[in-house]
Simulated scan of single mutants.
Amino acid sequence: MTTTPPRNPRGTRAAMSLAAVTTALLIGLPGTAQAEPGDDEVDIDELTQRAEELEESYDGELIQFTEIKGRVEQAEEDLEEVESRLDASRAGVSTIASAQYKNETGLDPALHAMFSSDPEEMFSDAATLSYLGQSQSEQISELIDTRDEAAEVAEGLRTEMADAEELIEDLEAQREDVEERIAEYEEEQVPETPGTGSIPDSAMGWGWSGATPRMAAIRDEIVMRFGAPYPVGCLRSSADDHGVGQACDFMMSSGGAIPSAENQALGTQISQYAIDNADRLGVKYIIWEQQIWQAGSWTWMSDRGDNTQNHYDHVHISSY
């Protein structure tokens, strides 16, 4: 009578435990939470539509929402890329598990007892990975790292989406008040040259005479109160408020340099003065030190690459 040799129980346990480890890594360990909106959640397209409906009420682009939307879209692209790498990494580790399961003697005997331990604890210990072959160790480590990266990107996306939704809700709540203020601004008689004879020539930068009456009034009041360490620029050819004379840049340094401590403090004073008097003056938004103020709150601006683009060397003020 022919008998089948008994299988090595420790070898079987080792091979199956490795499969269990990989299963834990593939499906059991915390991974990326779903970033797609559920039935009761908004998505960026819905928020964009709501923002577009608000633009007329706020007399133009909602620059804060545009910044957050850009970060949301970048996070979505990043998540898609990292999840693609995660899928590839999972496939590689799955191959390791399959090979070890089919070949019960393929493991170093020194690993048999180790593989009988708790899978999650075993592979959370970096020392354990050193017992594996280098290629296998690197593949499993890559899976763990990529899984964590995907979770971090997904969490960042959820945070940006929450910020975007909160911003739109705040703007919608203020909509009627803003519309009433804009109507009042349109009825006011603003002096065409409020600072004539009192503004030094050294303060008059590019496009000075092209500012609208309201923006000129804001500009001149600030210059007369705080001075101007560098020329103030207003009208220029651009797609933003500068292009229609509704914005001026109050320079705190030249050549793209970080301002001195004194001028940095001055820029902060100017931005705060514009905030404190926003309703009276008709200030639409302010940009200073990579932040945007609009409708009562500050929002971080995405990094645009240098001190000027990030508004560290000047305070940008736009008017209605």
Rank of each mutant, 00 (worst) to 15 (best):
S198F: 06
T3I: 10
V21M: 11
L79E: 00
F250T: 04
P119E: 03
E169P: 04
Y230H: 14
T159D: 13
E76C: 07
E36A: 15
C248W: 09
A183D: 08
Y185C: 04
H112T: 06
S130G: 10
R219I: 08
H112E: 11
E46K: 09
V244R: 12
I63L: 08
S253Y: 02
T159E: 06
T308Q: 02
E104G: 05
T23E: 15
R225F: 09
A110E: 14
L86C: 04
M161D: 01
M16F: 14
M1P: 14
R90A: 14
Q269T: 05
P30N: 05
G70D: 03
G38D: 03
L111D: 06
T12W: 05
Q136K: 14
E192L: 12
C234E: 09
K284P: 03
V283W: 06
S89I: 02
L132M: 12
H311V: 04
T12R: 12
R147I: 02
I63A: 12
G305W: 15
G305K: 09
A274L: 03
E166Q: 14
E53T: 05
E81F: 07
E61F: 08
A261R: 07
A203Y: 03
S84T: 13
T48H: 14
M161I: 02
R175H: 06
A173H: 10
F65I: 06
A14V: 08
I270V: 12
F250G: 03
N277K: 02
E83Q: 08
P5T: 10
L54G: 02
D276N: 09
S124W: 02
T3D: 12
A261G: 07
A88R: 07
A257H: 04
E180Y: 05
E262P: 07
P231E: 01
E160T: 09
T105K: 12
A24T: 12
T4M: 10
G255C: 03
R175S: 15
R90N: 11
Y58G: 03
L157E: 00
D45I: 09
I199F: 01
A14N: 00
I317W: 04
M251K: 10
G282K: 00
H112Y: 13
